[in-house]
């Protein structure tokens, strides 16, 4: 769907070349929600804007839906952009226009839509984002979450098959963030839209993304299914994101001095999350366990859990327990043997 071939970007600042994106290959699949996570300056915003060429690449090829976007002339680029919707951190709505006028704008600009057609489409979109009563209001009269809903409706107006989300929930409170993410997931599911989003919040990735790329210093350092990348994290940047989002179970080595036996981190994914695996293994092998830290949550629609446990028992019991846990589909990391 979206294909990057050795795409790179450098900015020229006062005669000096500042690299923002190192040569990157990337493939985003049709219909997936693809997330890019990174700290500010990691190059994620540049990468996102290269997709619809709001940023011009310094080199490489971008192919989207079989169209070589990097080869388009100004006219071609404009009509291509109508097949790609975009929403923004600060919504970027026109303050001088009503909600309905904002949503109608992409269609007006594209031309070829009658005003009755446009009005009908605007009504449909308002229903989809749940803002039917607010059509005649101005953006300044709306809350942040409502503004982003208008942004989403506007991005969908020309019926795009790709939606780019630029830190779309970073200016929203946690509850509103959850609602907006739910709306995005709905759109992805019902309209089959491919979504590329960038964020610095782990939670956004965990809630809606199918696959994730972790960016650092203009490079995608890790890429894969969300569960594979984060359970357990490998790259230092990934680890730092996971730790930031899990400060509640951040346990120090000193705490562990007090416990007996070996310490392992168990990662449950999917059905094993709710299965009584740990208890059964303990019973069958005769090992004792104590839970040091843990959390149960979801990655998109998939339940997942992570427990840090101390196992105490004989050498052979511990070995049997590990084997049985792995056999039950639990990923096991030994933290202290």
């Amino acid at each position: 769907m979206i294909e990057f071939q050795q795409v790179h970007k450098a900015y020229t600042v006062q005669g000096r070349q500042i690299p923002a994106l190192q040569p990157t290959d990337l493939h985003v699949r049709r219909g997936e929600v693809f997330g890019l996570i990174g700290h500010s300056g990691a190059g994620k915003s540049t990468l996102l804007r290269l997709i619809n060429r709001l940023e011009e690449p310094s080199g490489g090829r971008i192919i989207i839906n079989g169209i070589e976007v990097t080869a388009l002339d100004a006219n071609g680029l404009r009509s291509f952009r109508r097949s790609v919707g975009m929403i923004f951190q600060h919504f970027n709505l026109l303050a001088s226009k009503t909600v309905a006028e904002n949503i109608a704008m992409p269609m007006k600009l594209a031309g070829g839509h009658g005003s009755a057609d446009i009005a009908q489409r605007v009504r449909e979109l308002l229903v989809r984002v749940g803002l039917s009563e607010h059509a005649q209001k101005y953006p300044a009269q709306l809350s942040g979450g409502q503004k982003q809903r208008v942004g989403i409706a506007r991005a969908l107006a020309t019926g795009p098959d790709i939606l780019l989300c630029d830190e779309a929930t970073s200016a929203l409170d946690p509850q509103t963030t959850a609602q907006v993410l739910q709306l995005l997931a709905e759109i992805n599911r019902e309209l089959g839209l491919t979504i590329v989003l960038i964020t610095h919040e782990m939670d956004v990735i965990r809630r809606v993304c199918d696959r994730v790329g972790v960016m650092d210093g203009g490079v995608i350092v890790e890429l894969g299914d969300v569960a594979d990348v984060f359970l357990p994290p490998q790259h230092p940047t990934t680890i730092s994101f996971v730790q930031e989002s899990e400060d509640d179970d951040f346990v120090t080595d000193e705490d562990w001095q007090q416990v007996q036996g070996s310490i392992v981190r168990l990662t449950f994914l999917g059905e094993s999350t709710y299965a009584p695996v740990l208890g059964r293994v303990a019973r069958e092998t005769g090992i004792d366990y104590s839970i040091l830290a843990g959390r149960i949550g979801r990655i998109k629609d998939q339940p997942c859990g992570q427990l840090t446990v101390a196992l105490s028992g004989s050498e052979s019991q511990a070995l049997a327990a590990r084997e049985q846990l792995q056999a039950a589909g639990v990923t096991l990391e030994v933290i202290r043997a």
Binding site: S79, L93, P106, L164
Partner: peptide
């Protein structure tokens, strides 16, 4: 706000449309 210009650009607007609309 530059973001507004960017948003309108992302809709495929011409320079004239960006100015007028």
């Amino acid at each position: 706000d530059r973001g507004i210009i960017e948003a309108v650009q992302s809709m495929g607007a011409t320079t004239g449309q960006i100015i007028w609309n």
